[in-house]
Amino acid sequence: MTASEQPQQLAQTLEFAAERLTRRIQPLHATSRRLAFARLLVLLGGGALALLVAILFNATAAWILFGGAILAFLILVIWHRRLDDWIETLTLWRALKLDRRARLLLEWDNLPPPRPITLTDKTLVYDLDLAGIHSLHQALDTTISRRGTNLLAEWLAASQPDVDGLKARQSIVRELKSRARFRDRFQLTYRRTLQRELEGEHLLEWLKTEFPSARLRWALPLATLLVAANLVLFALWQFAAFPPFFLAALGAYIAFYYWHQKDLETVLGAVVRVHTELDKFRALAQYLERANFFQTPHLAALCAPFQDAAAAPSAQLRRVRLNAAAVGLRNNPLLAILLNVILPWDFLFAFL
């Protein structure tokens, strides 16, 4: 087989795979429509039948029948959602096959438009069609982040490339070449969890921000003492006929809290923002943690941080998620007051 025939054969293979996925998707859509009708029928029919039983017989039997209908409805909902998820997965997989085919044959009309980039070295960009419409960058760009697409453009447009870095990337690409399934699954994971490209700028801005952690570090033990004193004095007043000195402790704690409120809002707001950004990476991190890099040493070295079981990124992201969930409880004003009265809630999670 000649070099010119190889892309054509691979394109035919990809087209056949896309057609096969289309044939799998079509009956699933029909099943999805039937399930949607069945859900409606079970809910309305079960409700009507339960009402009829209540009129003709007794309420207990009607409630049992209605409960059974609700249970059947929920089972159908779960089944329907899983089916729709599978349809979405197959549809995205089909799109990946067609995207690879379009890049292979340079079918520009079937490729995504070139994404905006910012280059420092533009010496060769326009003369050699390295970036822009119908360019090498557009043909190769399957990156999932804004920084990724910009970095690819910088590599392509570098008038004085880093030879060692270039050879290292070539070694990784050679290993990725034979791992189409790994590449497809990574892209599939990304497309299923995110509807747009990743943007790391917000996260980098957060990492550069200076937070008042030093002041909050000593504020936590003081807040803990004030809360403990308040609870003890309240218990003594409630159960031992002690004077209501807890009001003074509560007032001191409220004053202490408002003295640090600005710092608390800064840190806790940042926790929520960083969770919003980091949570986008969770599914991708989990995929790379479970991936097998057998006989691909360069790719394994690149992904080594994800393979470290002692410091798995997904575990770190899970902790951030729990902290953000705890901070999110403050959105309810009454719950926020209660939590901060019985615990130094905001001080604790600002410190963590």
Rank of each mutant, 00 (worst) to 15 (best):
F73D: 04
A54G: 13
A48R: 01
L43I: 11
D109Y: 03
T91F: 10
G46L: 01
L51V: 12
T60F: 12
T91R: 11
D85P: 00
G68H: 02
D85E: 15
V53F: 14
L74W: 13
P113E: 14
T123W: 01
T60Y: 14
L83I: 02
N58K: 13
A102L: 09
F57K: 06
L76I: 08
I55C: 08
P113Y: 10
V77D: 06
R115W: 07
D109G: 12
L106A: 15
V42L: 14
V42H: 00
G47A: 13
D121Y: 06
I55N: 07
A95K: 11
I87P: 04
R94V: 01
R94D: 02
G47S: 06
I64R: 11
V42C: 07
T89G: 11
A59P: 04
F57N: 13
A61S: 13
A95W: 04
V77T: 10
T123K: 15
L104S: 11
V77K: 09
T89S: 08
A59E: 14
L49V: 13
H80V: 02
L74P: 00
P114G: 10
A72Q: 00
W79L: 15
R115H: 12
K122Y: 10
L41I: 08
R82M: 12
L43D: 01
L52Q: 14
P112E: 06
P116S: 07
A102F: 07
R115K: 11
L40T: 13
L51S: 09
A48Q: 03
L40A: 13
G45F: 02
I64G: 07
T123V: 12
R82E: 09
G46I: 09
L51R: 04
I87S: 10
F73R: 07
G47E: 01
D84A: 15
V77Y: 04
L40I: 12
F66W: 15
P112D: 12
R100D: 15
T120R: 12
F66Q: 02
P116W: 04
W108N: 07
V125F: 03
G67T: 08
L44Y: 05
I75N: 01
R115D: 06
A61G: 12
L65Y: 00
F66Y: 06
R94C: 10
V53N: 05
G47Y: 06
L83T: 01
L52P: 05
D85Q: 15
L41H: 03
R100W: 06
W63K: 08
L90C: 02
G45E: 00
V53M: 04
I75R: 05
L92Y: 04
A62R: 08
G45L: 02
L96D: 00
L51E: 06
R39D: 03
F73S: 04
K97C: 14
R100Y: 10
R115C: 06
F57L: 10
W86S: 14
L119K: 09
V53Q: 08
A102N: 15
L83E: 00
W108V: 02
W86G: 13
L49M: 11
F73C: 08
